[in-house]
Amino acid sequence: MAPLPPPSPLPEFVYKITPSAPPNPIPEQYPLSDLDRKDGFVHLSTSWQLPITSDLFFKDFASFYVLKLRLANFDASSVKWDEVDGTNGCPHLYGNFGTQDVVAVKEFRRGEGQSWKEVFAAETGWLE
């Protein structure tokens, strides 16, 4: 992964995909996934990256949850914008997030034969 400069302007929100319902209430320190723990950072996406990330890494899932996080809550030095598989600027949080950072949580479902790109194309208002 090569570090990239942050996008300009910065998005207001970044998103965390989780295959199961998040704890309710969201804890002050969110439980890290095995992948996040192994890689040493929390994998996040921008709104425009969600369909790509979903189709690449959650293609076998019929549903998952997305946590909407306010990017301004994180120190700029804790979020690195890394190039991954030619994708420009995937946000990686070197640290953790919790209840104070989560603006909203939503479950996304897809129909038989439907791609995640199609699901997110139909989404209005929640993604920013």
Rank of each mutant, 00 (worst) to 15 (best):
K68L: 02
F108Q: 01
F57E: 06
G111P: 07
Y65P: 05
S47D: 04
N96L: 09
L50N: 00
P25W: 01
R110E: 07
V14C: 01
S78P: 07
Y65I: 11
W126A: 02
G125D: 04
H43N: 11
S63V: 06
E112T: 14
W116S: 04
N88I: 14
Y30K: 05
F61W: 08
W81H: 04
T124K: 07
D55W: 04
I26W: 05
G125Y: 03
E112M: 14
I17T: 02
D60R: 13
Q100G: 12
S8Q: 05
L10H: 01
L10C: 03
S77I: 10
V105Q: 04
R109Y: 10
H92N: 08
I52A: 08
L56T: 14
N24S: 12
E128P: 06
D60L: 12
T18P: 03
K38M: 10
C90M: 10
S78L: 14
P3C: 12
V105Y: 02
K59I: 10
S33Q: 09
N96D: 13
P9M: 03
G95M: 08
P25T: 01
I17C: 01
F120Y: 03
D85F: 08
D34Y: 12
D60F: 08
H92D: 05
W81D: 02
S47P: 03
A72D: 11
P51N: 04
S20D: 15
P3A: 15
N88A: 15
G40P: 06
D36V: 10
Q49F: 00
F120S: 00
L35G: 06
L4V: 09
Y94K: 09
G98N: 06
L4E: 14
P19R: 12
D60M: 12
P19T: 10
P9F: 02
T87E: 11
K16P: 03
F108G: 00
L4Q: 14
D60V: 11
P23T: 04
E112K: 14
R110F: 07
P22S: 11
A62Y: 11
K80F: 06
F41W: 12
E128V: 04
P91I: 03
K106S: 06
S63M: 09
E12Y: 03
N88V: 15
P27R: 08
V14T: 01
W116N: 02
L4K: 09
V102N: 02
S77D: 15
L35A: 12
G111H: 12
V103W: 05
V42C: 05
G86V: 15
E128A: 08
S77N: 15
I26D: 05
K80R: 13
